[in-house]
Amino acid sequence: MKRTPIVIKVGGALLDDQAAMSRLLTSIQTVLATRPVILVHGGGPLVETLMASLGLSSSKIDGLRVTPDEHMPYICGALAGSANKTLCAAALQAGCTPVGLSLLDGNMVTCEPLDARFGAVGVPSAADPALLKSVLAQGLLPVVSSIGSSPEGRLLNINADQAATVIAELVQGELLLLSNVTGVLDGDKQLISTLDAAGIETYADQGVITDGMLVKVNAALLAATTLGRPVTIASWNAAIPEILNHATGTQVFPSPLPSGDTL
């Protein structure tokens, strides 16, 4: 269990916080001595800034952003290029040896278009773990962008939470969803240490978990259900060992918590 890979997903907002990025990569560097780590990232803010500068815009359907195929060269450049290499450079500074990858490299993950209405938005499926396992075996840090491809070679934009989940599925890893929040808070602004589907529904009905956090916990619940193990929502400012030891963050379980569980 000790050598179970840790899959860490970070949002693109981390790229705008140099201090937080440095702390996270330094924490990852210490963990690499005992466990493999894979860093999966999005880059929404970077993409939005680039698209605005190019005078490009896209709509949303049911909360999901439509990605026209003609936008993919720019999105690919922002995510697999700028965002990925910024994180790789920070990893080098922290003493890690990064390997920048995308979902399609080594046929790690295969992707299919979600629906014609959404353009080049894809759904990922775990495929071949050989490349990833080879990189991990060398003590390197894979830094994976959420750019995928269909078997026909069509580049696809993948939701970063889904990308991290499929990578965790690929290596049977422990998934941490990190952002600029400490975890899920209750009505008194106290950290909720554990959640399951019933707890999420109750807090949502009470108006305690709303908006972006509701999206986040539902993504964590889906990931936990897919992986068959808890997924942790925590802050990228916290030390990774603290998160792994459940000293901070919120664990989202795939099934109802056993009675009296205080994990």
Rank of each mutant, 00 (worst) to 15 (best):
residue 231 V to Q: 08
residue 11 G to S: 11
residue 121 V to L: 03
residue 22 S to T: 15
residue 130 A to S: 12
residue 208 V to S: 05
residue 90 A to E: 02
residue 81 G to R: 13
residue 57 S to G: 03
residue 116 A to P: 03
residue 241 P to D: 06
residue 22 S to A: 15
residue 93 Q to K: 15
residue 75 I to A: 04
residue 86 T to V: 01
residue 256 P to C: 05
residue 8 I to N: 07
residue 158 I to E: 05
residue 121 V to Q: 05
residue 154 R to V: 12
residue 132 L to K: 02
residue 9 K to H: 13
residue 129 P to A: 08
residue 95 G to E: 09
residue 23 R to G: 04
residue 32 L to I: 08
residue 80 A to C: 07
residue 3 R to W: 04
residue 120 A to M: 03
residue 214 L to M: 11
residue 92 L to Y: 11
residue 202 T to P: 00
residue 247 A to C: 13
residue 130 A to H: 12
residue 147 I to N: 04
residue 201 E to S: 13
residue 116 A to Q: 10
residue 243 I to W: 02
residue 73 P to L: 12
residue 143 V to N: 00
residue 255 S to N: 06
residue 254 P to V: 11
residue 22 S to H: 15
residue 87 L to N: 02
residue 33 A to I: 02
residue 227 L to V: 04
residue 139 G to R: 07
residue 146 S to D: 04
residue 186 D to K: 00
residue 31 V to E: 11
residue 115 D to W: 06
residue 129 P to N: 02
residue 138 Q to V: 00
residue 237 N to H: 14
residue 162 Q to R: 04
residue 164 A to E: 05
residue 28 I to P: 06
residue 95 G to N: 12
residue 43 G to F: 11
residue 47 V to C: 07
residue 197 A to T: 05
residue 174 E to S: 10
residue 32 L to D: 00
residue 71 H to W: 15
residue 154 R to E: 09
residue 44 G to H: 14
residue 210 T to M: 14
residue 87 L to K: 08
residue 158 I to W: 09
residue 50 L to C: 09
residue 75 I to N: 02
residue 86 T to Q: 15
residue 207 G to M: 10
residue 18 Q to N: 12
residue 202 T to V: 13
residue 139 G to S: 04
residue 185 L to A: 11
residue 149 S to R: 11
residue 84 N to G: 08
residue 246 H to M: 09
residue 21 M to T: 14
residue 66 V to N: 09
residue 158 I to M: 13
residue 53 S to T: 01
residue 197 A to K: 06
residue 13 A to I: 01
residue 19 A to M: 11
residue 243 I to F: 07
residue 134 S to K: 12
residue 103 L to E: 03
residue 237 N to V: 02
residue 110 T to V: 07
residue 172 Q to N: 15
residue 7 V to F: 13
residue 143 V to G: 01
residue 96 C to S: 14
residue 28 I to R: 10
residue 16 D to R: 12
residue 216 K to T: 08
residue 54 L to G: 02
residue 199 G to K: 05
residue 42 G to E: 05
residue 238 A to E: 11
residue 129 P to H: 08
residue 34 T to Q: 14
residue 154 R to M: 12
residue 219 A to V: 00
residue 262 T to D: 13
residue 217 V to H: 00
residue 139 G to Y: 03
residue 98 P to I: 13
residue 209 I to V: 15
residue 166 V to N: 00
residue 108 M to Y: 01
residue 175 L to Q: 05
residue 215 V to I: 15
residue 73 P to A: 12
residue 205 D to P: 00
residue 45 P to T: 10
residue 203 Y to L: 15
residue 232 T to N: 04
residue 161 D to Y: 05
residue 239 A to L: 10
residue 151 P to R: 14
residue 120 A to Q: 01
residue 77 G to T: 09
residue 235 S to T: 05
residue 67 T to V: 08
residue 118 F to N: 02
residue 16 D to E: 15
residue 65 R to C: 12
residue 61 I to P: 04
residue 223 A to D: 00
